[in-house]
């Protein structure tokens, strides 16, 4: 009986992993598009003119810390410590909200300055790549809220722990994608 459950858990885990890998392929096409178009500024600003390195570093450290706290949340869930689960995932949620706020404030600053996605191919591909990542972060935060309600109502059941595990897997995955956004968009922008 116990073995059967473990096999099912492994299958669910693998299924979610397959989803993450297809999502990775989608990000790969967006990264390829950005790399090809990042020089096509059409007389508009280039990456070095509009991106602030300290700002991007802050975003990176916030997301990295949230990835860490979601991992600690999973450890608390495995030890059946409900309060700690709420504490660590609560911190993860707040860090995620801060990250998303920073990303949206950068977007709005660009649009207000007249550097929206319609300005050049470079900016279109930038908004598509970083915006898609932001959309994933937003859905992760929504998923977190749903799980908070679920656990409050039904307690830390086996199924709840499994859902939390998949959520933290998703969150770690988004952190990895962001490392490459940080490197290819912001650091390359600062170098070239």
């Amino acid at each position: 009986m116990h073995d059967h459950e473990a096999v099912n858990r492994d299958k669910t885990y693998f299924g979610f992993w397959v989803y993450l890998m297809t999502d990775l392929l989608m990000f790969a096409t967006l990264f390829a598009t950005y790399s090809v178009l990042s020089g096509s500024t059409f007389g508009g600003p280039a990456a070095r003119d509009i991106f602030s390195l300290p700002f991007a570093l802050t975003e990176t450290l916030i997301l990295l810390t949230s990835s860490f706290t979601s991992g600690l949340g999973i450890l608390a869930a495995a030890q059946n410590k409900k309060i700690h689960v709420f504490l660590w995932f609560g911190i993860t949620f707040l860090l995620g909200i801060s990250f998303l706020t920073m990303e949206l404030s950068e977007f709005s600053r660009l649009v207000v300055d007249g550097n929206g996605p319609q300005k050049s191919a470079f900016l279109s591909s930038f908004f598509t790549l970083v915006g898609t990542h932001g959309l994933h972060i937003a859905s992760g935060l929504l998923w977190m809220i749903i799980l908070f309600v679920y656990i409050t109502r039904r307690g830390l059941t086996k199924s709840a722990v499994q859902k939390l595990t998949l959520l933290s897997l998703f969150w770690h995955f988004l952190d990895i994608v962001w490392i490459f956004i940080f490197t290819i968009v912001y650091l390359f922008g600062g170098i070239l």
Binding site: L53, L61, L64, F68, L75
Partner: peptide, 30 residues
């Protein structure tokens, strides 16, 4: 079966290494 979680030690080590790698990449560019 697949171990879906690590230990506090492995998460902390991964976190510290990630911060170091981020800063090592960031400082020369800055």
């Amino acid at each position: 079966h697949t171990n879906t979680h690590g230990s506090v030690f492995s998460y902390t080590l991964g976190f510290l290494l990630s911060i170091i790698l981020t800063l090592v990449a960031y400082v020369p560019v800055a």
